[in-house]
Design a protein around this nucleic acid. Structure first.
Lengths: 264, 264
DNA sequence: CGTTAGTTTGAAAGAGATCAAAGGTTGTGG
DNA sequence: CCACAACCTTTGATCTCTTTCAAACTAACG
């Protein structure tokens, strides 16, 4: 990897090669011209977080923004008695933070080992003001995330527990397909990026219910649980028939919006 | 009103005076320079829709975008068996449509008599490309909506029916407060922009459950139902204590994000 | 006034949550 | 390499909240 040294907090103190950056072609910086790109290079700071670490915490002042370059993370929000809900999934290339707000609105937790390319918020806002390419790219990404959030609101508001779980699988399959840039086959194997408890938080259910539905779906032959974090989907179409919204999941459209911020 | 004539479909054929436009200071066009503003004037088309009408339908090609200038509308999405969920509330000044996508993702329904200021999508995208002021304003609005959507995901995923209803009331109170630009008092009167069935679709509940919780809250003295579409909240703080997230509702922050696209 | 649509209330059923315990994995130290 | 601890997952039994089905009530409107 490009990180050559690292201090105690996980911040690299020197070089990181943008030209081999895994999100070079779709992050917020992906469409800027060479001089804007140099500005970014000058102010960026590479940091890493270990699995489970809080990248940001709701309520604290927002001091930096940036791109997720490796790993995955999620956005979470809690009620005062501790009930929690995941409200977003962050994958490589996704933007973290909110220009124009001084306070963080959601907890952001590293789901795996994570690498970030961060900018101090003031530095970033200066570039954003000056660069139409950056603000347009960020607009595009934000619109995609908004559609994805709204689509997921339907799942949280109306879907049964079985539908929620199959919807999550469909989302992950499409995600992989897009990321690996290949077609969705009739069968698929997916690596679950979460533990059962994370899945429960994502779906608005308890872990017990999630576990029961896993078993049911396996009993019905719709999935095969292959170890704790891996499942096989023998028939993708049969799976999405259980989501309550198969038409949408079949439709190419979802391939675009359900990814955190996919682009073509 | 400024509309001087109207054809059968509700499209005005001539003048509309932007200088007295009710959303002049916060719509997508609010920050552009005089010449950009002239461009907007040249391509805009004022349309109106009656209560209950579909402004757009999920799946159809997106031919135009624009601003909601009067009335309110909502975004809705359905499962194939007819279960429905509202996924957004549109108030005057809010932007309708999605540059960069050719297909409409959600049903948009007029909640009241509605007036729109529309542009053909191609015309709008041309201005968007050329004008940093417009794309920055749209980015700002979209980021606010994304935060609001995610905040609502917590309600849909985790709140009880009582919490959902009180959260909706809190949202409407804050909305009014912002719109009328006055402080939230200890007591408030709100006009419900929906029927019970709409509230149910918004909250992810059935109308029966909504109705029962209305009665409960009135029994507990937290609200007074004053006619079908009006309620009085004698003690706003007592109300938000029932949301499960009173800290957030008290916090000024929510005054910013829970509005569809408020600006300061 | 009577009709219709919207709202409230009641009783029963169902889905998911909660409480509780047993099974499996993973990791560590002997 | 095995044993044990800690953690995660699955399964079971029961309870609770929301839905469903049904009917009564109320307000608006012709």
């Amino acid at each position: 990897m490009q990180v050559t040294s690292r201090d105690a907090t996980g911040t690299t103190t020197d070089k990181f090669n943008c030209s081999v950056c895994p999100v070079r072609d779709h992050a917020v910086c992906s469409r800027c011209n060479p001089e804007e790109f140099e500005q970014f290079k000058a102010i960026r700071r590479i940091r890493s977080f270990s699995k489970g670490a809080h990248i940001m915490r709701a309520g604290e002042p927002m001091t930096s923004v940036g791109s997720l370059t490796r790993g995955s993370a999620y956005l979470r929000r809690s009620l005062e008695d501790g009930r929690r809900q995941m409200v977003g999934l962050l994958m490589p290339g996704d933007f973290i933070g909110r220009p124009g707000r001084r306070e963080v609105a959601f907890d952001i937790i590293a789901g795996t080992e994570v690498q970030l390319c961060q900018f101090r918020i003031g530095d970033f806002e200066r570039i954003l003001q000056a660069s139409p390419a950056v603000s347009r790219r960020l607009l595009e990404m934000t619109l995609d995330e908004l559609d994805a959030a709204r689509l997921w609101m339907l799942v949280l508001g109306r879907a049964t527990s079985r539908e929620r779980l199959t919807s999550l699988f469909a989302l992950l399959v499409q995600h992989d397909a897009r990321h690996m840039s290949r077609k969705i086959g009739i069968s698929a194997k997916i690596e679950l990026p979460f533990a059962r408890s994370d899945i429960a938080e994502f779906l608005g259910l308890t872990i017990e219910t999630v576990s029961r539905r896993f078993s049911d779906l396996q009993g019905d032959g719709l999935i095969r649980i292959e170890g704790r974090r891996k499942i096989l989907i023998p028939d993708y179409l049969a799976l999405i028939a259980e989501t309550g919204d198969s038409e949408s999941w079949r439709h190419e459209f979802h391939g675009e919006v359900c990814l955190s911020s996919a682009v073509e």
